[in-house]
Computed example of a mutant assay.
Amino acid sequence: MNLWMNARGTLMNRVPESHDEIFKLMKTQALGPLLIAREAEGDGAEVKWLSRYMFVARVDEVDILFHDSRSLDTTVAATFAGRKDLTRLLLQQAGVPVAPGGVAKSLSKVEAMQKAMGSPLVIKPKTGTKGYGISVGVQEPGELRRAFRRANKSDNGVLVERQMPGIEYRVLVVGGAVVGALGKEAAHVVGDGRSSIAELIDAKNIERAKNPHLSTRLIKVRKHIRTNLERQQLNVESVLAEGRKVYLRHEANFSAGGETLDVTDDLPESIKAITVAAVAAIPGLELAGVDIMLDPDADDAAKAACVLEINTNPGIGGHHFPAVGQPRNVARAIWRHTRAMMTARLAWREGLMN
């Protein structure tokens, strides 16, 4: 099930000049909460900003506080979702498919798990966001040691999982419903027969800078990219043959230069149901971005899907400004659900008092 094969549109959707205002506002306000605040104001709310990521929307004498795109989530739910090991446990208990793996508190344990599961592995910190500390495609003993040290910064162990084949998607669930889905592809360049990899990256960054979501997620040539190129017997000065595609990183995180493709209408309902169940597995979580891997070559539909992570700050701008495909106004869905839930909660409390 390779939804990228059905992609329509140019490599990078052109952002109309009317979005210049958004770029100006992004100097003081983060994109996600900015989009929600605009929907709140359009709905008659008075918005007061507290910081770059926080604002209060007052409507019908009700104050609704947002931190990034979050408002209704309980503190306990957000804490659980921030712990990859606890999230994995809750998903397993709910029958949501996850990759084989578990927690390892020592390098010897990681080595034993590799022997049992095979390679390649994904090694992650037990907590963290934006792909920090995650190593993908780990196989060799030296890679294993480096990946363990990188993920075990707090000395409380790491999460080790079998790297599953397939294509990664980010699905946004709000109030028990899927409101947007994006294909995720790791940072890469395609040769033109003339330009070096460094020049191809610069050209891609120029296009990313025109997109409000991707403008803050440019591809940065650091050690990880240089090492990955060396494994392919390349460096940033290499000139690629026309049409040759080279991946700069293994992980498909948007913050690491990943591409975005809207697949909301094409994602099967059975897969959407898995992502809804994944969020429901953490009681008190109203909004989350679910990273799910789909294997287009799986001969068993039950084994084709695997939930990788749940993100409570999912970067909703990617749905409004996908690199390819139709924009989705998920901010409107978030605002309307939040307003409805807050109104219902207040009515319930007033009913108890009366």
Rank of each mutant, 00 (worst) to 15 (best):
N2F: 09
L3F: 12
M5C: 02
T10A: 13
E21Q: 01
L25I: 00
K27T: 03
T28F: 07
A30C: 04
L31S: 03
G32Y: 00
L34D: 04
E39M: 01
E41T: 02
A45S: 10
E46Y: 10
V47I: 03
K48V: 06
L50R: 13
M54T: 09
M54V: 10
A57Q: 10
R58S: 09
V62P: 04
I64L: 09
F66H: 01
D68N: 10
D68A: 02
L72A: 02
T74L: 07
A77Q: 10
A77H: 05
A78H: 01
F80P: 01
A81H: 03
G82F: 12
L89G: 03
Q93N: 00
A94H: 04
P97V: 03
A99Y: 15
E111W: 01
S119I: 10
G128M: 00
T129E: 00
V136P: 03
G137C: 03
V138P: 02
E140M: 08
E140T: 13
G142L: 14
R149Y: 07
K153A: 15
L159M: 12
P165K: 04
Y169D: 11
L172S: 12
G175N: 00
A177R: 13
V178N: 08
K184S: 06
E185D: 11
G193W: 12
S195H: 09
S196I: 06
A198N: 14
E199F: 10
L200M: 06
I206F: 12
A209G: 11
L214V: 02
L214T: 06
S215V: 02
R217C: 11
V221S: 14
K223V: 10
K223F: 06
E237M: 06
V239T: 13
G243P: 14
R244Y: 01
V246N: 07
E251F: 05
N253Y: 10
S255K: 04
A256P: 10
A256S: 11
E259K: 07
E259R: 08
V263P: 01
E269Q: 14
S270V: 12
A278P: 05
V279A: 06
G284V: 15
L287M: 04
G289P: 06
D297H: 13
A298F: 05
D300E: 14
A302T: 07
K303D: 14
P314I: 00
I316D: 12
H319Y: 15
F321D: 12
N329T: 04
N329H: 11
R339S: 07
A340Y: 00
R345K: 06
E350C: 09
L352G: 03
